[in-house]
Amino acid sequence: MGDNILQINVEVEENTTIVVPSGDIDLSKSGELRAVLQQILIEAPSKIIVDLEAVSYMDSSGVATLIEAFQLSKRAENDFVLCCLSDGVKSIIELARLDQIFSIHPTRDDALES
């Protein structure tokens, strides 16, 4: 079997919370990202950034997790931003035609300034 380990770091800069997952986000791991995002959504920072540079693969359950957090942030009138998409993540975001829905930035600095 695989050795899929997902590590999720959370950093706080003023009113922005930056979520930095590392590893593959598939059906076996998307629940871990969802739990972290749900906790952050309760704390309601004005902006959540998800830095996806170290996520080489994401499946539709990972995308569903991002859509849910995006919609809950929007409802609370807070920002939900993605940055540093790896090729693997970019691929599924484009196939799902979500590249025009999510706010996506090439670097974390761009995401912080957005």
Binding site: S60, T65, I67, L95, A96
Partner: peptide, 16 residues
Amino acid sequence: LEDIRPGGLGVHLIQT
């Protein structure tokens, strides 16, 4: 896909 919601993307991805 215009219906933006979590879930239901798998078959779309396979067929695409």
